[in-house]
Design a protein around this nucleic acid. Structure first.
Length: 125
DNA sequence: AAACTGTTTCGTCACCATTA
DNA sequence: TAATGGTGACGAAACAGTTT
């Protein structure tokens, strides 16, 4: 049940904000992103209430209202999904950079441990 | 060059949690 | 409790790299 779709361009602007589930320093990395399809939003940006809810009567008007509500919902959900994915990407980036930091830290500690072992081990000749 | 395969992005639906 | 927002899952489409 897919709607006919789209043209090609990119949006998905990777701006830095902090909303990641676990707040971290943003890792500035580059991402080779595929940029496909324009957000051929079926609706103009900023769709607004057309009529006051109380003034609808005929079945036609009710149907139109229902359609409008649905389109609004879809538009909002579309935007929400974009935002959700953006946050998730950012979160993953943060995790990756944290992993990198911890790996370096771990390596250093292992080296330090080895030197300490060398120093402390009794010399048997 | 066409066919195939894997990856990425997007829109939608369904569901859950929160809020008014 | 209805409305709303966030997100996982799914399928479609675009694209890139590989194979024939």
């Amino acid at each position: 049940m897919q709607k006919p779709n789209m043209a090609v361009t990119g949006d998905e602007t990777d701006e830095e904000t902090d909303l990641a589930p676990s707040h971290m320093a943003a890792a500035t990395g580059d991402m080779p992103t595929y940029q496909i399809r324009a957000p051929t939003t079926a609706l103009p940006q900023g769709v607004v209430m057309a009529a006051s809810p109380g003034s609808l009567h005929s079945p036609q008007q009710l149907a139109e209202e229902a359609t409008r509500k649905r389109e609004l919902r879809l538009m909002k959900n579309r935007e929400a999904a974009k935002e959700c994915r953006r946050r998730k990407k950012e979160y993953v980036k943060c995790l990756e950079s944290r992993v990198a930091v911890l790996e370096v830290q771990n390596k250093k500690l292992i080296e330090e441990l080895e030197t300490l072992k060398d120093i402390c081990s009794p010399k048997t000749d």
